[in-house]
Amino acid sequence: IADITVSQYILQRLQAAFGDEDFTYISEETYKSQLQEQNSQLVWLIDPLDGTKDFIDKTGDYAIHIALIQDHRPILSIVAVPEAETIYYATKDSGTFKETPKATVPITLLTEKSIEDLTLVVSRSHRHERLNYLLQHLPCQNQKAVGSVGCKIATILEQKADIYISLSGKSAPKDWDIAAPELILTEAGGSFTHFDGSPLRYNTDDINQWGGLFASNSNYHQILCQEAQRILLEFDNLKR
């Protein structure tokens, strides 16, 4: 009920403000009934409740994602974390800001840790054998369990973790899970790519983000992406 109520609220507000002529609206809650004319240049991607399981389990790790997509890339995003009374927002080429009831501050990521001291933020759920093998063989072994992609990326912005990895199994994260968190991370100076370094694309023919996604505060991003590819190749060879 919370999920649907918030989805309806966000859609009504955005549609009232921006209309249907220039904008398309895609929400996790309404996606299946919308299939699918997305010819607008500007597309709102909305996840009204990211981290549903954590919301139900009362961990506090849930978030709202709102992203505006142009030419398959995010140009504006909001990640709201209600239990922290915080929203993170970013626009393309203008940086990331953290807003609380007390203040608004820019966020710039800096770290001088060694590769072994980096901390991975991982899911409590969504685990499978291939991902577990990868996590066990990376050079950085510190892990912190956080729910919701938005909250995971917020943990990196708060410099309580350094890396987030998504590796699809039978299912994959959807555009609305990733787009808003991506922009708040990259505008703060982080990186969010496929394992091969290529950028993510949204509002394509497939709403799923298949494969390996690597998000980090940028230090060692390329090295660790290459290492992840090597470890997965090793795993796949072992399974043959």
Binding site: I1, A2, T5, V6, Y9, I10, R13, L14, A17, F18, P48, L49, F55, K58, Y62, I64, I66, L68, I75, L76, I78, A80, V81, P82, E83, E85, I87, Y89, T91, K92, S94, E99
Partner: peptide, 27 residues
């Protein structure tokens, strides 16, 4: 204008957060 769009989206984000927060705490 992206700044104007952002101002509306931020307000929507805060209000949506209030709604979820209320459900989460059963208030």
């Amino acid at each position: 204008d992206l700044a104007e769009i952002l101002a509306i989206a931020r307000d929507v984000g805060w209000k949506a957060a209030d709604i979820l927060h209320s459900y989460y705490h059963g208030t």
